[in-house]
Design a protein around this nucleic acid. Structure first.
Length: 516
RNA sequence: GGCGGUGUAGCUCAGUUGGUUAGAGCACACGGCUCAUACCCGUGGAGUCCGAGGUUCGAAUCCUCGCACCGCCA
């Protein structure tokens, strides 16, 4: 496509993580969502899509305000500190997000304000009186009958505050029927299906209008209709998905990327994304996202991670100890995406040693030296018609694609590992170290080694979404100069991408075994 | 209390519309190989498929009841 007149026909793919709340430094759950999103984004780029991968931070609200006061700094200063934690971690985890939105940025605030104004004008928002209880730590409103012992938050058990004040309400009730219709006619709108059923049941029970402003709260986006009111932090946060596209400002960008293909969320915030968010969009007359995907939680010994139980896993620490690709691989491989999983160091070590060190790392580390020793360290020319590995790859590619299209990362990885296992078996069967001793077997030896190198080339491509740093190392050891990140998967189909004569490089093992 | 889900080898789980000796990975044991990070390849053991009843020529798979665990809501 060249210049001004060309039409960009590339398919677009827009995916998001939630904006993370900056009340604390990132934990394993944040890393999980973001790594999964990254794998998907990278895969789609390999498939030739123009991808927009958005993540960011949610920085308003009472909780931030209070936390900042305790530290004697401004809320924005607090946010700045935590944001840099997030951004550093994403860097260490090779997260390839295209944009990072902070809800304190003016590009966001403008859109939120505009959205509020418009919904008020069209009477999707009205002024009323809110009577109820509010839990500051949870940022949640409760009705009296929902409270435990008359005054405790049913979610966290802490004391809720009684509130009776003027407030603006969003007419959520208006969208009950349209939402149900949409859920019915779009089976992939909420995934996995079990979560969708929960949402449907919840909506069927009836939706009530929700209070979306608070009085006397300094740290938030002011209500454009009446400046004493501040917009509720969840409404503020959700709008990031369109403010980042320049909704109402940059029409081209917005229309080319919206609707989002996937909003990735943890199961704890599904309702905001599967009910309130689509209702807001309907009110605005904007198309709904394709899919809201809710993944599960990582548990420790079957228990939910929580600071009070002191069983929180710090992703930064895991990266420091075992490496970033190792963490990415474990999280994406160990459990089917959507369900809960158990995180433990022995499980982590077992997985990394057996899959990454033994199967993949060793495959590379036994192939390259053979090439160095018997082919002068250069990619040899294949001569006979052995298609064992080529056919294996051909068989796996469509399966892999299918798995990735439904975000089945662990299944996708297990397919890739079938190729790896085939390659290990292939070496054993062909025994190139024996061929090397027979003068009349040179051609066969060359073919065998070429097929192995070529398989490794394809593996580097396929693994790039999951373990980008290591995939690049494989790529480099194969002597390929081009940038792995700018490749497309079509090349994986074409057997023979490696040019004979290219020098390979022997390096230290990709994944050192972790000692228990 | 209501709705939904799960319960299969030591561990984590697959098992399409019910159909022959119930599968995979890891772990374990034995054998092979020696290019490689004691790795890789092969073979093997082990399961009353939660329990009880029922439908059927035939059920892990369908129905009923019970038990256990989990999720959403109240």
């Amino acid at each position: 496509m060249n210049g001004k007149r060309g039409i960009d026909l590339r398919k677009k793919f827009y995916l998001t993580t939630p904006v993370y709340y900056v009340n604390d430094v990132p934990h394993l759950g944040h890393a999980y969502t973001t790594i999964a999103a990254d794998a998907l984004a990278r895969y789609k780029r390999l498939k030739g899509y123009e991808v927009l991968f958005l993540t960011g931070t949610d920085e308003h609200g009472d909780k931030i305000n209070r936390a900042a006061k305790e530290k004697g700094i401004t809320p924005l200063e607090l946010a700045d500190q935590v944001v840099s934690h997030f951004q550093n971690l994403w860097k260490k985890l090779s997260i390839s997000n295209d944009d990072f939105i902070r809800t304190t940025e003016s590009r966001h605030i403008q859109v939120v304000s505009k959205v509020f104004q418009r919904l008020y004008e069209q009477e999707d928002i009205y002024r009323g009186t809110y009577k109820g209880w509010y839990c500051v730590p949870c940022e949640s409103f409760w009705l009296e009958l929902q409270l435990r012992n008359g005054q405790l938050c049913p979610e966290c058990g802490r004391k809720a505050e009684k509130i009776e004040e003027e407030s603006y309400f969003f007419r959520l009730s208006r969208y009950q029927k349209p939402l149900l219709d949409h859920l019915e006619s779009h089976p992939d709108f909420v995934l996995p299906p079990s979560r969708k059923n929960e949402v449907v049941e919840f909506v069927k029970r009836g939706l009530k209008d929700i209070s979306i402003t608070r009085l006397k709260l300094a740290w938030g986006i002011p209500c454009p209709v009446e400046k004493e009111h501040t917009i509720y932090v969840w409404i503020d946060a959700l709008i990031n998905y369109i403010s980042a596209l320049g909704y109402g400002v940059n029409k081209d960008k917005f229309s080319s990327f919206w609707p989002a293909d996937v909003h990735l969320v943890g199961k704890d915030i599904l309702r905001f994304h599967a009910i309130i968010w689509p209702a807001l969009l309907m009110a605005l007359g904007i198309e709904l996202p394709q899919t809201v995907f809710a993944h599960g939680w990582w548990k420790i010994k079957g228990e939910k991670m929580s600071k009070s139980k002191k069983n929180v896993i710090d992703p930064e620490e895991v990266v420091k100890q075992h490496g970033s690709d190792q963490l990415r691989y474990f999280l994406l491989r160990e459990v089917p995406f959507g369900g809960d999983g158990n995180f433990s160091t022995p499980l982590f070590i077992k997985r990394v040693n057996s899959d990454l060190a033994n199967d993949l790392g060793n495959l590379l580390n036994r192939t390259i030296p053979l090439v160095v020793r018997h082919c002068g360290g250069k990619v040899p020319s294949p001569t006979d018609e052995d298609k064992t590995l080529q056919e294996k790859v051909k068989k796996i590619l469509p399966l892999l694609d299918e798995a990735m299209n439904v975000l089945s990362f662990s299944e996708a990885l297990s397919y890739i590992w079938e190729i790896i296992k085939s390659a290990n078996l292939y070496i054993d069967r062909c025994a190139p170290w024996k061929l090397a001793n027979q003068e009349d077997k040179q051609k066969r030896l060359n073919t065998v080694l070429y097929n192995l190198l070529e398989t490794l080339r394809v593996l580097a491509l396929l693994l790039f979404p999951f373990i980008p740093v290591s995939a690049q190392k494989i790529w480099t050891q194969l002597g390929i100069e081009e940038d792995l990140g700018s490749q497309t998967l079509d090349k994986a189909h074409v057997w023979g991408g490696l040019s004979p004569g290219t020098p390979v490089k022997k390096e230290l093992p990709l994944f050192p075994r972790i000692k228990q």
